[in-house]
C-alpha cells in the first residue's frame, strides 16, 4: 500500500507556538521522510522534538504551514478524525511508561486494534487474528511466551520497550514514531533493541522516525537529521534561552 516513492511525511513552512505572542517552538521550512525510510532525528532536549512529533501525530495543530503524513493533509482532519488517523497510520513508542499497568502484556499489544478498524482489517487480510498477531510480534520481539498474560509491572524496562514496539507495529501502520525509546536502556540492550525494531519495521513495510540524542546509534539508520538544522526556531531557542532547556529536561 505504501508507495516507497512518495514521502510518508512532508512538512512545508510549518510554524508552531504554544500561545500567541510567545516565541515559536517550531519553524520548519521543509522536512520530509520517504516511504520505507529509517530516519534518525537527533535533537537535544528542548529543541522541539516532542512538539514536532505531536504535530506529526495530529495531536497539536500548527498555526501555519502544512504537514502531510501518510498522504493525509493533517489540517483537513477534525476532532475525532485526528485520533482515528493516529491509530490507523502511526505506531508510537515513548521513552518509557508505554504500557497501561492495568492490562496484561497481551492486552496492551492488542489495544490499538480495539480502536482501529484499519489495523484489524490488515490483520485479517494477513489471515490472522489480533491475538495471534500480537503473540507473533511478542515472539519476534523475543519476549518469553510465559510473560504474555502477566501484568506489565513485572517486566523489565527493556521488555516493556519491546512490548511497546510490538504494540506500535500491530496491524502494520505506515509510520512508526519512536521518541527516545532507548534512553532508559543500557548499551547492550540498546543494540539488541534496535536489531529487533529494524527487522520488524522492515517486515511490516513501515517507515521509522526515530528520535534520540544518542548519536552513536545514528550510523545504523538510512539517514540522520539534526533537528536544529531543520527547525529555525530551535536554533534561536537554544542559543538565546538556556533556561528553557533546563526546564524541559527530563
Amino acid at each position: 500500500m505504501t508507495n516507497n516513492e512518495s514521502p510518508v511525511i512532508q512538512i512545508n513552512d510549518l510554524e508552531f507556538r504554544w500561545k500567541a505572542n510567545t516565541p515559536l517552538v517550531l519553524n520548519i521550512p521543509e522536512f520530509s521522510v520517504s516511504g520505507g525510510e529509517r530516519l534518525f532525528l537527533r535533537g537535544p532536549s528542548g529543541s522541539g522534538k516532542t512538539t514536532l512529533l505531536s504535530v506529526i501525530a495530529a495531536v497539536l495543530v500548527p498555526q501555519s504551514g502544512t504537514a502531510v503524513v501518510t498522504g493525509v493533509p493533517l489540517h483537513t482532519l477534525k476532532g475525532g478524525q485526528k485520533d482515528q488517523f493516529r491509530v490507523d497510520h502511526i505506531g508510537l513508542v515513548f521513552q518509557q511508561f508505554n504500557l497501561l499497568p492495568f492490562l496484561s502484556v497481551l492486552d496492551n499489544v492488542v489495544l490499538p486494534c480495539k480502536f482501529s478498524k484499519k489495523r484489524r482489517d490488515t490483520i485479517r487480510q494477513m489471515g490472522s487474528t489480533a491475538t495471534d498477531e500480537a503473540m507473533r510480534l511478542l515472539k519476534a520481539m523475543e519476549l518469553p511466551p510465559n510473560l504474555t498474560n502477566q501484568s506489565v509491572t513485572e517486566l523489565s524496562v527493556g521488555q516493556q520497550q519491546r512490548v511497546a514496539v510490538a504494540r506500535a507495529l500491530i496491524g502494520q501502520p505506515e509510520l512508526i514514531i519512536a521518541d527516545e525509546p532507548t534512553s532508559a536502556l543500557d548499551t547492550d540492550t540498546r543494540q539488541a533493541f534496535l536489531d529487533l525494531l529494524f527487522a520488524e519495521v522492515q517486515a511490516a513495510n513501515s517507515s521509522l522516525l526515530f528520535v534520540s540524542h544518542d548519536v552513536d546509534l545514528s550510523q545504523r539508520f538510512d539517514r540522520a537529521v539534526d533537528l536544529k538544522s531543520i527547525n529555525l526556531a530551535a536554533q534561536a531557542l537554544t542559543d538565546a534561552n538556556a533556561s528553557d532547556t533546563m526546564r524541559a529536561a527530563p
Binding site: A57, G79, D83, R86, V87, F94, F97, L99, L100, F115
Partner: peptide
C-alpha cells in the same frame, strides 16, 4: 496522566 497519553497514542479519543 501517563496512562491517558498512552491511551491517546493508541487511538483513544478524549471522549474515551
Amino acid at each position: 496522566r501517563r496512562e491517558m497519553a498512552v491511551l491517546r497514542s493508541t487511538g483513544a479519543r478524549p471522549v474515551h
